[in-house]
Structure formats: structure tokens, C-alpha cells
């Protein structure tokens, strides 16, 4: 039996090789090189890749985690040399950092711009210089400014949170749902709120009370305190951001209210620990991955080494990777806790 299977396998392989030899347009691969889609094990060391990494200032937990995760990922590969520059919210400085990478002729740049539009000209310059640019989280305004883009799904976060609220409040048509948003004028906040409203509408609910904070602990506390004053009874709260959620939780504890459950956003480790221990208002959180920068590092390495994304048939690395926003509950928290960020 075992022998028969081996014979079959050899036959199939020979046939396949013959077919490829006859019909393939591309010259045969010499084990590596830059031809794209060489199906070797992706983690095996290839040619040396120098990657420059720049992100905004690490002024809240999620942003700090972006850089830390990127560094940790690069450390796993012996063929990656990562150059991380000072995180900055000054676009003038961030542009000069990218210019330095261009001068240094790095192989790839992984860039989480403070402002996507403002960093577009210099990213275009880098692409023109033949450098692989991977755009993370905040999009450039030109499709030619990056080889690939890694994004979180802001709209999807809202949808996931809304669906979870619907599920828990099933049949309660008079339920009071509150929302604590992040910085209201940012497109990402608008996307999250839109997704949340759409998902709630599908089960006949709506957002009764909505306040906006500014992603900081202090602003979260203030917004939540106001919200709790405004609404005498609440059934569910969705808070967009777990960093500001530290302040929201503090305000809830101070008020002594416990008639509602809370859903977080972004997915910090302390919220996940709270969900796991079931000792606070958080019963779930939706993830906005803080490992986007780390994924950017991996993609940059694959593109430069001419490898494909494993498990895809496509020979090139995709133009855009939009990450999923799963709901983390007590049942599945162990799966997500290892990659969660500390706020």
C-alpha cells in the first residue's frame, strides 16, 4: 500500500515537471533570485534585506506596540537588518528620515506615516529610487507610492462590535446602546461608527447615546463620566479604543454602575485579561491589529527576496492586505492574548 502510494506520487511529480517544462513561459528558476513566486519555504534565510522602519511617536500603547512588534519580527530573521528611526509626529522630520533611508539605498521601507497624504511625495521618491515601500495603517493618497499596503479594518471593527452587541441583546428592542468614539474628525473613527450603526440596524437597534474622546486615558475618563450622567440606564457600551478604555473603566468604577456590558476596541492585553478573568465591565473587545508593522516587515522581506505569500496561488505579494477585526470573548481570548499590546 505504502509502496503503491509512493509510486503514484513519483508519477504525478514527473508528469507535473514535464508539463511545466513544456508549457512554462518563464525560464526555469535557479533556486531563488528575483523572479517572484519561487515556492521555497518562506522562512528560510534568503538574500540579506535592509529594511528602514518609521512610525509616529509612541504616545499611546497601540502605537508603541507597532514598533515593538516590528522589531521583534525582524529579530526572528537572520537575513533582515532593521533600521528603526525615532518615532515622530513632525511630518518634516519623518520626511527627512525617509530621505535618509533613500540615501542609504535600503532595500525596503516600512512606513506608518503620521499623515498619509503628507508623506506621499517622499514615498513616491523612494519608489522611483527602486526601493520597496510597504505602507502601514494610514494610506498614502497615491497608488504608486507603495508596493503593498497593510491595513486594519476600521469599518469591520464597527460591524464586529455591532454584531456582538446584537447577539447579546437578542430580542431586547428597547435596549439602550451607547458608543464612546475616538477622535471624531478622523476618517477611521467615522468608518468605525458607520460600521457599528449598520450592524445595529440589522437587528433593529440603534446608538442611543454617543460621545467622543481622544484616544487618551484622560479624555476617555471625561467622556465616559459625561455619558454615564446623560444616560440613566444603559445596556451596552462600545468603546472604540482600549487605550482610552483605561479611563472609561475608571469612570465606570467611580460611578458604581454595573447594569451594562462593555465592548472594547483595538484589543489591548489588559482588556483581554479582564475579559478572561471576567472581573470588569468588558465582556468582549474587537481587534485592530497592533502587529500591522510586523506584517509590513514580513511583506517587505518577501517582496525584496522575490517570494510569494505562502498559501496563496498568486506568485506576487498582494497590493493590499486588509486585516480582519475579530471579536474576542472569554471563549477565544487565549488565542489572541499572545499578540495583544500592553497599553
Amino acid at each position: 500500500m505504502a509502496h503503491k502510494r509512493t509510486t503514484l506520487l513519483v508519477a504525478a511529480l514527473t508528469l507535473g515537471a514535464a508539463l511545466t517544462a513544456c508549457t512554462g513561459n518563464t525560464p526555469q528558476n535557479q533556486g531563488g533570485g528575483n523572479q517572484g513566486g519561487v515556492k521555497v519555504a518562506n522562512d528560510e534565510p534568503g538574500k540579506k534585506v535592509v529594511i528602514g522602519f518609521s512610525a509616529p511617536a509612541a504616545d499611546h500603547g497601540w502605537m508603541a506596540a507597532i514598533t515593538n512588534a516590528a522589531k521583534a519580527e525582524a529579530g526572528k530573521y537572520s537575513d533582515v537588518e532593521l533600521r528603526v528611526v525615532e518615532g515622530t509626529n513632525d511630518v518634516n522630520l519623518q520626511i527627512s528620515q525617509v530621505e535618509t533611508f533613500i540615501n542609504d539605498k535600503v532595500d525596503a521601507i516600512v512606513l506608518l506615516p503620521f499623515d498619509g497624504a503628507a508623506l506621499t511625495p517622499v514615498a513616491l521618491k523612494a519608489m522611483k529610487a527602486g526601493i520597496t515601500v510597504i505602507n502601514v495603517d494610514r494610506e498614502f493618497d497615491s497608488p504608486f507610492a507603495a508596493r503593498s499596503t497593510v491595513l486594519g479594518d476600521n469599518h469591520g471593527m464597527g460591524v464586529s462590535a455591532g454584531n456582538y452587541v446584537c447577539e447579546r441583546l437578542k430580542g431586547k428592542t428597547d435596549a439602550v446602546v451607547a458608543e464612546i468614539a475616538g477622535i471624531d474628525s478622523l476618517p477611521l473613527t467615522q468608518d468605525r461608527s458607520r460600521g457599528f450603526a449598520e450592524a445595529l440596524a440589522s437587528c433593529g437597534l440603534k446608538v442611543s447615546n454617543r460621545v467622543a474622546a481622544e484616544f487618551t486615558v484622560e479624555s476617555g475618563e471625561k467622556a465616559a463620566a459625561n455619558l454615564l450622567q446623560a444616560a440613566r440606564r444603559i445596556d451596552a457600551i462600545w468603546n472604540h479604543d482600549d487605550d482610552q478604555g483605561v479611563g472609561v473603566t475608571a469612570a465606570i468604577k467611580n460611578s458604581g454602575r454595573n447594569e451594562f456590558f462593555m465592548v472594547g476596541g483595538a484589543g489591548s492585553a489588559n482588556v483581554m485579561r479582564e475579559i478572561k478573568a471576567d472581573n470588569g465591565p468588558h465582556k468582549a473587545t474587537v481587534i485592530y491589529p497592533s502587529t500591522q508593522g510586523a506584517d509590513g516587515i514580513r511583506l517587505a522581506r518577501l517582496v525584496v527576496q522575490g517570494k510569494s505569500l505562502g498559501d496563496l496561488v498568486e506568485v506576487e505579494v498582494p497590493r493590499q492586505v486588509e486585516l480582519y477585526a475579530p471579536v474576542v470573548t472569554k471563549d477565544n481570548v487565549d488565542r489572541y492574548l499572545p499578540t495583544a499590546f500592553e497599553s
Binding site: 513632525d90 511630518v91 499623515d115 503628507a118 506621499t120 511625495p121
Partner: peptide
């Protein structure tokens, strides 16, 4: 000119 953008966040600090 450097950023091809105008923004309320420019010139921080």
C-alpha cells in the same frame, strides 16, 4: 511644498 499638504497638525512643538 515639502509635504504637498496643509494640516492643522503641521508645526507641532
Amino acid at each position: 511644498a515639502r509635504t504637498t499638504t496643509g494640516s492643522a497638525t503641521h508645526g507641532g512643538l
